[in-house]
Amino acid sequence: MKKQLVLLLVIGILFLSFQSFSPETPSEGVFPDEISSILKNSCYDCHSTATGSEKALKAIDFEQWDQYRLSKQIGLLGDIGKVVEEGKMPPGKYLEKKPDRKLSESQIKLLADWTRQEADKLMQAD
């Protein structure tokens, strides 16, 4: 009886200690590779948890993407498509300092097309 209790305790402790090993940050693979690399190059400086600014992160934090609820994600996808197509993002001031972050025409199209498809997909998902 005492042995069983010890065994149960050991299993319990093991189980609890496993809790500190959770899967790696799930943001990997949230976006398709092609999109992810564009975002990382042109958007992450301001819109990711590690390096972002408060104001930019309030608008969107790409690293927290999977924390956003469905309605938020769809709205943000709409916003992303528009701001890159209208040339509002990345901002001109930022590009003055880092001209290599400018989006090319093909990158803009890729982002805009993807945001639309993804938004449509999410709307169906509900």
């Binding site: 609820r69 309605s71 938020k72 769809i74 709205g75 943000l76 996808l77 709409g78 916003d79 498509g81 639309r116 938004a119 709307m123």
Partner: peptide, 15 residues
Amino acid sequence: LDKADKIGAFADFCD
């Protein structure tokens, strides 16, 4: 507004 913007507006409204 397009569909995504309507949804986004309601989400932002709540936020």
